[in-house]
Nucleic acid binder design. Structure first.
Lengths: 228, 228
DNA sequence: AACTTCCAGATCGTACATTATTTGTCAAGA
DNA sequence: TCTTGACAAATAATGTACGATCTGGAAGTT
């Protein structure tokens, strides 16, 4: 339907290859440039992407496996809705998983780890949300440092996937000042608990952190939907 | 490498279409008929399945999205190892998720729900593990009855996926008598807590249930690996 | 022995054929 | 006249075939 509903923040895309077809489609879905339940016709996408149909079909199959598109036999693919419910759902899952990962981390944390975390946290506070991309990378490495050593790779992968989705959604949304302050204080509280070897407190802190983050994203989504 | 490593319990497969290509591949991976890290060559699979390469490629892409195969550009697909670690990982995730789902269920359970659950539980006890397939279907509907009404579809989907994987792995493995008794008593304990409106107790009961189930599957996997 | 060249084999992309579904048309009946 | 049903054409998904491109290893040269 909509001819070329790409956002204003298009860096490279002449008209063909941006990243891989998979990445472009996934990005378009997560950002809502492809509307919920919109039909995805392979030939249409192929001509838009400037390739033949086969790469598109394979990208769609991969996205189907990840749950971003829904396919019915002989009836093609549709966009799975990425709405506030969706965000709430994956945040609720993270509220369950991340405290468990964190609790375990407190048990194996080393002095060097704490120093690394404090260094990253200092960078975050110094940056103070002036650069969205840089902040998100620092925040990612802060949490990644805790989870990367975990033995449960499946849980960590799940976290990474959810995290990527949430970040893709919230990209472009501004972070409210209140949320900024909360992020910093929650990180500091988490760090304190880790240093005190208080696993339970750390788990609670990260739980609050995830919940607050989810609430903020949903709030922003609501506002932007109204603002449309 | 291995020409046709299909199990003895092959019902239909003449030599071509069993279910879809996707299902056959997925099943072969989960059951270990395709060994860990084994290379998956599209043309080889295509001739084995009796189709051209394209359907195989798409099935592989879908499996990649679900995490069952790993693909590197220009270097093809490999089987992701489905080992004891993998089972432990997804069970640990379920130990986090299922209690949360159950806790919520206790809050909205109706008289009719309890009666349904008791009916299913009675069927399970009457069957007493004489028919593996029938038992697993009853067990599935027991838990599904609790989770199907949950608002967090994403969490429930995750549960279903994990459940399918675990069931596919444990299919063919015998259930030890000790585990059989535990399954029954854990279900009864869960039912009691639900009837008493004891959400916390129910959550703990389901946690024990999942953990015990995971332990049992891993034990069986170890034995079968030795037995080879 | 190390480096280069070349070739077999596999992946990736394009084009086309087949099959299923949707859409549009037209005529018969209420 | 409006609805309804059957039938035909268009549209899109699914499957097949083939060429282009990349990788890995073997043979050959220095």
């Amino acid at each position: 339907m909509t001819p070329l509903p790409r956002s204003a923040t298009d860096e490279d895309t002449t008209d063909e290859a941006g990243g891989s077809i998979y990445e472009r489609l996934r990005d378009d879905i997560i950002h809502g440039r492809l509307r919920a339940n919109e039909r995805l016709k392979v030939s249409e996408l192929a001509s838009r992407m400037g390739t033949s149909t086969n790469p598109v079909r394979e990208a769609l199959q991969q996205l189907r496996g990840e749950g971003f598109v829904i396919m019915e036999p002989n009836r093609g693919a549709r966009v799975r809705p990425i709405d506030e419910e969706f965000v709430r759902d994956i945040c609720e899952i993270e509220v369950l998983i991340e405290p468990a990962l964190t609790r375990w981390f407190v048990g194996i944390v080393t002095k060097a780890d704490v120093e690394d975390l404090e260094r990253i946290q200092a960078d975050i506070e110094r940056l103070n949300f002036t650069d969205e991309l840089a902040h998100s990378q620092l925040d990612m490495s802060f949490h990644r440092l805790m989870y990367d050593k975990h033995y449960n790779r499946h849980a960590v992968d799940l976290w990474v996937r959810h995290r990527e989705i949430l970040w893709a959604i919230s990209r472009g949304f501004p972070t409210s000042l209140g949320r900024q302050a909360n992020v910093l204080s929650e990180h500091r509280e988490l760090l304190d608990c880790i240093k005190k070897q208080d696993a339970e407190g750390a788990a609670q802190a990260i739980g609050k952190h995830v919940e607050g983050s989810g609430r903020h994203i949903i709030e922003r989504m609501r506002l932007s939907r109204r603002g449309h």
